[in-house]
Amino acid sequence: MKRFDFAPMPTADGYFGDYGGQIVPPELKQIMDDIDRAYEEIRQQPEFQAELAMLHADYVGRPSPVYLARRLSEQLGGARIYLKREDLNHTGAHKINHCLGEALLAKYMGKTKVLAETGAGQHGVALATACALVGIPCEIHMGQVDIEKEHPNVTKMKILGCKVVSVTRGTATLKDAVDSAFEEYLKDPVNSIYAIGSVVGPHPFPKMVRDFQSIIGREAREQFLAKTGTLPDIITACVGGGSNAMGLFTAFLDDEDVRIVGVEPAGKGLDTPDHAATLSKGRPGQLHGMKCYVLEDAAGEPLPVHSIASGLDYPGIGPQHSYLKDLGRVEYDTATDDECLDAYMTLSRVEGIIPALESAHAVAWAMRTAPTLGRDQSILINLSGRGDKDADYVAERLGL
């Protein structure tokens, strides 16, 4: 008997328990429903499935391998640490998984423009890549702070033919980029599509992005069984909006003996305002067309948030994560900026693998946890992206 009795995820109207939904202006309700209907149509088509499978294999380079980090495991003692190498995908992160799906959906729907936000730039690069592949113009909104911090990705987007819009309002980071891109989308929602970069936003995006990302967990479960004859004791991933985490977690939700841990950014510390630990410190609210946990002030306005990782500094969280937290199926812990930097450098120098700062949060949690476990136990980390985009920033920060 399973330990958890899951409700449908999501329901027909886009709810994961009490979270999710479609909190949009009336004029957008039909647009969202049209996207949902087109998605449900296209996902059933053998031609679409065949094209996506071909692109996964021949364009992205899937399946991404599961790698035993032997030297890191030996150095830490305790549990064996494995990495699901999404950093080896074309464009360097998990983002290409859903961007290909969204670009193909836009083409199927006859859209003439794709809009999106990006934080660290990985979603922006992946979407610009996918749009170049299918031949649809792409416009990416990015906070000015992140543009300066992640400039290599900005250059890539421009080379790929993408229009990059600098957002200077507010904190000039991810939340403000979402606001800006959505406002542009509202100008012509009929001919354009907003390709949301995580499992957030109004229905059907949390469902759709999760489905496209779930290939991570399906592969990882099969690969781990083939390598070890058993399932991992713990799986873990960083959590901002939550797409890479949900991509890994989905395949393991029914495996009651697998402990599942999402790692949020504690920034400069949970006792300071400079963090983005939404599930650890937030409360249920509304943001960007959905009900979810939100970091907000007494007036219900989203708080400014902080993380060393641009892709994690978001004051909300995917509605399915919110539901799984309340249900108790997934644990949510945190890692600080300093722990993240230590993990970034340790994995680089011990295994020769430079992780994205986002992914380094999950590595940091595993490094903290592995020594407390037995050598017969295992931790599988979703290494969601590579860290070349962060190298100059880290080098300057650490004085290398």
Rank of each mutant, 00 (worst) to 15 (best):
E148S: 06
G20K: 01
G17K: 02
A220E: 13
H151P: 00
G311V: 03
S198P: 12
C292L: 01
L76R: 14
G92R: 04
S280D: 09
E139I: 07
Q144C: 04
R283F: 04
A226V: 05
F249P: 13
A366I: 00
P315T: 04
K187Y: 09
G269W: 04
R221F: 05
T236Q: 09
T230C: 13
L160N: 11
E222Q: 14
K389V: 12
L295D: 03
D342Y: 00
R37T: 12
G135K: 02
L68V: 01
Q213D: 12
M345Y: 02
D255F: 04
F6V: 14
E40A: 01
M208N: 13
E396I: 00
D179V: 11
Q320P: 08
I81W: 01
G170Q: 14
V305H: 09
K84M: 03
Q22V: 00
M142G: 13
L186Q: 15
V66G: 04
G77K: 00
L373G: 11
Y19L: 07
H288W: 03
V330T: 06
P46S: 04
Q45T: 10
G14S: 07
G269F: 04
D333L: 11
I42R: 05
Q44V: 02
D271E: 12
L104P: 02
E86M: 01
L324A: 03
A298G: 08
D188Y: 09
A12I: 03
E264P: 09
G262M: 04
Y39T: 06
K29P: 01
K281S: 13
D271A: 08
D33T: 05
H275R: 02
C131N: 08
D18A: 10
M32L: 06
V66T: 15
S192W: 07
D338L: 02
R43D: 07
